[in-house]
Design a protein around this nucleic acid. Structure first.
Lengths: 141, 141
DNA sequence: CAGACGGGGTTGTAAACTACAACGTAGCAG
DNA sequence: CTGCTACGTTGTAGTTTACAACCCCGTCTG
C-alpha cells in the first residue's frame, strides 16, 4: 500500500473520530460536560498550571479557557491562587470536590475505553498510545 | 507498564486530539468550514449515500445533517436526487464544483498531515491507521 | 524611579455546531 | 385503504468557540 493511501486512511479515521467527539456535550458524563471535564482533568494532571498553559495545550483562545476555568471555580471544583514563582498570573489547583467528581467520571471513562479495546493486546494498546502521543506532539503549522 | 496506565495515556491523548480539533471551524480551509468539508469529503467517499448514512457515520442527529447538507447544496457543492433503489430518501452526489473544491482542500490537508508524520516509517503510519480504524469501528455503548 | 512594555486574565459580542421535539411526506405492509 | 415507519425539515435553545477591546500588574529601560 503506497504511503499516500496510508495517509488518506489516517486522515479519514482521524476525521471520523474528531467529528464523533464534537457532538458529545455531556453524553459522557451527566454531572459535567465533556469540555469542563477534560479541562478539570488536565488541571489535575499538571497541578500548578495556569490558564495560559491550558490554552497552549488545547490550542484555545485564552478567553475560552478563562470562561471554562471560571465555570469550574464557580462550581467549587478548582481554586485559584496567585503564582508565587512567576509573579504574574494564577496557579490552578483541583479542590477535594473536584477530585471526587473526577474520580467518579474517570471510572466511567475508563470502563468505556476498556470496553472498546477489550480485544486489544497490551502491546497493541501501548503502540496506539505512543503513536497518538507522537502525533499530538508534532508542532502545527 | 500496567494496562491501566496505558489506557490512561490513550485517554489523555485522545482527549487532547479531540479538544484541539474542536476549535477549528475554518482554520483548516478558508473556503469551507471544517465540518462542511468533512461532510463533503464523506459524500465523495461513498457516492450515493443518504443523509441518514452520514448521521450514522458521525453519530449526529438527522437535523444537524439536514442543515449541513442543505448548506452544501445551496453552495452548489452537492446535488440531491430521489433514491431509485430504496424508494425513500435522497441520494447525495458531489458536483464538479464540489469535487474541485475538495481536491484543493485535500491537497492542503495531505500536506499538513505529511508534515506531521514526516519522520514516521511506512510501517508505523500503517499501524497507526489500522489502530485508529479498529478503534473507530468498535461499537459505542 | 517613572514611564513604557508586555504577559496573563476578563468581558462583550457574534458565530458555528449541535440536540431535541414537532412536524411533513411518502413508501410499504396488512 | 389505512396505519406504520423511514427519511427529512424546521423551530428553538444550549454549548463552545474566536476575536477584539480592555484591565491589572510585574518587569524592564532610560
Amino acid at each position: 500500500m503506497p504511503r499516500d493511501e496510508i495517509s488518506a486512511a489516517v486522515q479519514r479515521e482521524l476525521t471520523v473520530f474528531a467529528r464523533r467527539v464534537r457532538g458529545l456535550p455531556s453524553r459522557l458524563q451527566q454531572q459535567l460536560p465533556f469540555v469542563a471535564y477534560s479541562m478539570l482533568s488536565s488541571i489535575e494532571g499538571q497541578e500548578g498550571c495556569r490558564s495560559v498553559d491550558l490554552a497552549a495545550l488545547y490550542r484555545l483562545d485564552k478567553s475560552t479557557v478563562s470562561r471554562q476555568v471560571g465555570d469550574l471555580e464557580r462550581r467549587g471544583l478548582v481554586a485559584r491562587a496567585p503564582d508565587p514563582a512567576r509573579g504574574r498570573g494564577q496557579v490552578l489547583r483541583v479542590t477535594d470536590a473536584g477530585r471526587a467528581l473526577l474520580d467518579g467520571a474517570a471510572r466511567l471513562q475508563r470502563a468505556e475505553l476498556a470496553r472498546r479495546v477489550v480485544d486489544w493486546s497490551d502491546e497493541e494498546l501501548a503502540a496506539f498510545a505512543s503513536a497518538l502521543q507522537r502525533y499530538n506532539a508534532a508542532e502545527p503549522d
